[in-house]
Simulated assay, not measured.
Amino acid sequence: MVWNAESALREAGMRVTRQRIAVLSALRDRPHATADTLTAATREALGSISVQAVYDVLAACAENGLVRRIQPAGSPARFETRTADNHHHLVCEVCGRVDDVDCVIGSAPCLSPHDAHGYDIAAAEVVFWGTCAQCGSAETAPAGRRSTKE
């Protein structure tokens, strides 16, 4: 079944607005997009929208579980609509590409710390850093994280 922004907003008990539909639709088509990327895409669909309005939509949707915000080290915040599981991310150190990867060990929270210090752990966030196949075939992998490109 195809994810539908309007249905998702209704199911979350949120008002359905043109701006919310446009931002969520842009994000559906651009997983791991930054707010700047989503603003540009939403402007193509609506004609105009402020950067602040996009951030407001993203914040409201994150608060209601429709959007997940991730921020790999050295990278701007990115957003995704895959929120119903405890998946992780692969980040290319060359081009900044971000891909989803399912849990490492099965059921959430995927990883259990040696000592949880009394915490009731609900999720684990893991970021794998490396070189994507496209960049790996184009050049030798760098020694460390270099890029924040999208």
Rank of each mutant, 00 (worst) to 15 (best):
A35C: 08
N64L: 05
H88V: 08
D85H: 04
A84T: 07
L58C: 09
L38Q: 10
G65C: 08
R69Y: 01
A53W: 14
V67L: 06
H87P: 00
I70P: 07
S75M: 13
G47I: 01
T37I: 06
A60P: 04
L58G: 09
E44Y: 01
R78L: 08
D36E: 08
G47A: 02
L66T: 00
R69N: 02
E93A: 15
A53I: 13
A33V: 00
A59N: 03
V51L: 07
A40K: 04
A59S: 13
T39Y: 07
G65M: 09
H88F: 13
G96V: 00
Y55H: 12
A40G: 05
D36V: 04
A45I: 05
E44Q: 07
A35Y: 06
R97P: 00
R78G: 09
D99P: 09
V51T: 10
V67N: 02
E44C: 04
P72C: 12
A53G: 15
A53M: 13
D100I: 06
H88L: 14
E93I: 03
T37D: 05
S50M: 05
H89S: 14
H88E: 15
R97L: 13
N64F: 04
E80M: 13
R43Q: 06
A73I: 15
A33K: 00
V57P: 13
D99I: 12
A62N: 14
L38T: 02
E44G: 00
G47W: 04
D56Y: 10
N86F: 03
A33S: 01
Q71R: 11
P72F: 08
T42W: 06
A59H: 13
A77R: 02
V91D: 10
D100H: 08
V98M: 14
C95Q: 02
L58P: 10
N64T: 01
H88R: 14
D56S: 15
P76A: 00
H89Q: 13
T81L: 11
N64S: 12
N64C: 05
A45L: 09
T42C: 07
V91S: 12
R68V: 12
N86E: 13
R97A: 11
N86K: 10
L38Y: 07
T81P: 04
P76S: 01
F79C: 10
A53H: 13
A45P: 12
A84H: 09
H87S: 15
H87L: 14
A77N: 03
L90N: 15
D85V: 08
N86D: 15
G74F: 08
R97C: 02
L90M: 12
N86I: 09
C95G: 05
P76D: 01
A84V: 10
G65T: 04
C61D: 01
R82M: 03
E80F: 00
A41D: 10
N86G: 15
T34P: 03
C61M: 00
S48Q: 12
A77G: 09
